[in-house]
């Protein structure tokens, strides 16, 4: 278990990294960017990944935009791609009231030493279907900002994940930031793994929007809700069947159970040695119920 040989470059800035990617690619090399390396390095140690050149984005941490937490006038939250999970976990106030779910979700990301090193951008580009950041991106309508040799692209989360560990980010592009455009005070992420800190068997991120117009003497109503699942398909997926149940409904145990049942019904989860399809379906029902209940409880957080 030692990595195969590779050459190593430190990127001076984003343009430098993009330039190197292009040059090396043209030269027939197989370059790979590394940020925190918490997914890539284990794969390299097993020689399951063997880039010929590693381009280290670490030096770019000195640019505030690459590690910053910022808000746009329209309420969107922008995170620099090199922001670590741990910084996010400890920046509750900076994230703001609409994005508390991001902060809370971080305790599910591996363990403290992994969170101290792993980055938001790295996790999204890795594209694991159970990764908390991938679910959050879909939940909160994130836009992945990728700089390329000629232009900067904005990739909506809905178009980001193409399949098993495959994303829309091109081989000559560098993800520089992620903008979360949909604040969701009532949101939650929860998951199940046999051991705490492991990759989830199933995880879910949900949000709920109250409908002020219909929240009168008969109690509150929902304008809508969003249900995102990981671990049941090659990419994180939204479940419209569950969201339809939530829209216009009266928030409470019955509605949440119905939505969760709809989610469990709608999916076609894989069967593998880690878990049967039946079990993943059942976990989905449980986790969606629990996440919706928690999300509704966060209504007073703002």
């Amino acid at each position: 278990m030692k990595p195969a040989t590779f050459r190593y470059h430190r990127a001076h800035d984003v343009a430098d990294a993009i330039g190197m990617l292009g040059e090396l690619d043209a030269a027939g090399e197989d370059p790979k960017l590394v940020a925190g390396g918490q997914s890539l390095v284990p794969m390299m140690n097993f020689r399951l990944a063997r880039p010929s050149v590693l381009i280290d984005l670490g030096p770019l941490r000195r640019f505030p935009a690459m590690t910053g937490i910022g808000h746009d006038d329209d309420g969107a939250l922008t995170l620099g791609a090199l922001t670590t999970h741990r910084v996010v976990e400890t920046s509750r106030a900076e994230l703001g009231p609409g994005f508390g779910v991001i902060c809370r979700a971080m305790r599910w990301v591996g363990h403290l030493p992994i969170r101290s090193r792993g980055t938001v951008g790295g996790s999204l580009v890795h594209g694991d279907a159970t990764a908390e950041w991938c679910l959050l991106a879909v939940l909160l309508d994130a836009v992945i900002i990728a700089e390329g040799p000629d232009s900067t692209r904005e990739i909506p989360a809905a178009e980001m994940f193409h399949g098993f560990y495959a994303t829309a980010v091109g081989p000559d592009e560098v993800v520089v930031a992620i903008r979360f455009t949909r604040p969701s005070p009532r949101a939650a992420l929860t998951e199940f793994a046999r051991r705490h800190g492991d990759f989830a068997l199933v995880d879910t991120a949900v949000s709920l929007e109250g409908d002020p117009a219909r929240s009168n003497g008969s109690g509150p109503h929902l304008a809508g809700g969003r249900v995102v699942l990981g671990g049941i398909a090659p990419t994180p997926v939204r479940v419209p069947e569950a969201e339809e149940v939530l829209a216009g409904g009266v928030p409470g145990p019955a509605l949440f159970a119905d939505a969760a049942a709809a989610a469990a019904e709608a999916i076609d989860p894989p069967e593998d040695p880690a878990a049967t399809a039946r079990y993943r379906r059942r976990l989905t029902r449980t986790l969606v119920t629990r996440a919706l209940t928690e999300a509704w409880g966060h209504g007073d957080d703002r």
């Binding site: 430190r10 390396g37 918490q38 390095v41 140690n45 280290d56 992994i114 090193r117």
Partner: peptide, 14 residues
């Protein structure tokens, strides 16, 4: 910060 030193190339720690 606590970090796994098996998941960092020494060159990255400069």
């Amino acid at each position: 910060e606590p970090v796994r030193s098996c998941l960092v190339f020494a060159v990255q720690a400069e």
